[in-house]
Design a protein around this nucleic acid. Sequence first.
DNA 1: CGATGCCCCTGAGAGC
DNA 2: TGCTCTCAGGGGCATC
Length: 290
Amino acid sequence: MPELPEVETVRLGLQPVLEGYVLTDVVTRRGDLRVPFPLDFAGRTKGRKVTLLRRRAKYILADLDSGESLVIHLGMSGRMSVYSSGKQRRIGSYVYDKAPEGAGNGKHDHVVFETDAPARIVFNDHRRFGLMTLVDTERLEEDKLFKDLGIEPLSPGFNTAYLAKALDGKKTPIKSALLDQRLIAGLGNIYVCEALFRAGISPKRLAGAIKKEKLPPLLAAIKKVLKDAIAAGGSTLRDHAQATGDPGNFQHHFLVYGREGKPCKLGCKGTVKRIVQAGRSTFYCPKCQS
DNA sequence: CGATGCCCCTGAGAGC
DNA sequence: TGCTCTCAGGGGCATC
C-alpha cells in the first residue's frame, strides 16, 4: 500500500487524536510482524505522552515524552484506524466514527492504543509486512532503519542540483533509481511511474543518462504528484485507508499506473505498456516517454 | 557497484 | 460455488 502520500495522509489523520495526548493503554495482540516488538513494548509506551507526530520517508514517528520514538511502518497493507471512544466525533475536517463492537479484536489487529483524546487507535496489517518499534529519539538518525535514507522529496533541499548529483553516473534504470530509498526517501512504485510519465521520461533510460534539461520537469513532476496525492488522501487500490477509514481518491487521477493496454491519456494514440523492472510492474507510454 | 530473484504473508480477483 | 493461479503499494537479503 503506502507510499509517502498514503503515510502522510495517515499521519495527518492521527495527529488530532495523538499529538499532545497520552497513550492511556497499549495492548499488543500478536508479535510476529516483520520485526518483533521490542522488549516490554506496552510498558514503555503506556502512560507516555506523544509530544510530536512526524513522518520520515514511509515511517510515522511518534516522539514520546520518555525520550523514545514510536516507529510505525505500514508495510504493504498496514492501517491505523482511529475510533472515537464516545459517539462519532469531528475534529477539524476529520470525522472519527464511534468504535464498533470488537474494534481492535480483528484477526489482523496487532496493536490497540487508547489515548485520552479520547480515542482508540488500531494497527491492522493482514500481510504483516509492517513493523512497530521503539527508537531513542536523540539517536534516531543513526538507527539502521534511518541512517541510509535519502532526502525528503518535498523538502526544499530536493532540487535539481541534488537530483543531478543523486543520478550522476548511475547505470541503473531511472525507475529503479527513483525507487531507491537511499537516494530519495518515500517514493514507491505508483508515484515513480506517474512522475516519469508526467515528465516524459522513459522508465528504461539509465539514471545517469537523463539529459540535464529533463531534470527540472522530473523534479517538478515528483513534487506535484506527491502533493496532489496527499491532497487527495492518497491512493486506494485495495488496502489503503485514511485514519478515519475513508479511502483515498488519487487512484482516479492515475495517468498510467494500472492502465496496461489502455490508450495513453495524452492523446498520442499510443497504448500504455507494462514491463517488469527489478521485480515490480512499470507502466508507461512508449510514445510519450523517451 | 549494480541487477536479479527470492522471501516474508494474506487476500482479492480472474479463469476454469 | 469452488478450486487454482497470479498479483499486490515495501523492503531485506543472497547471489552472480
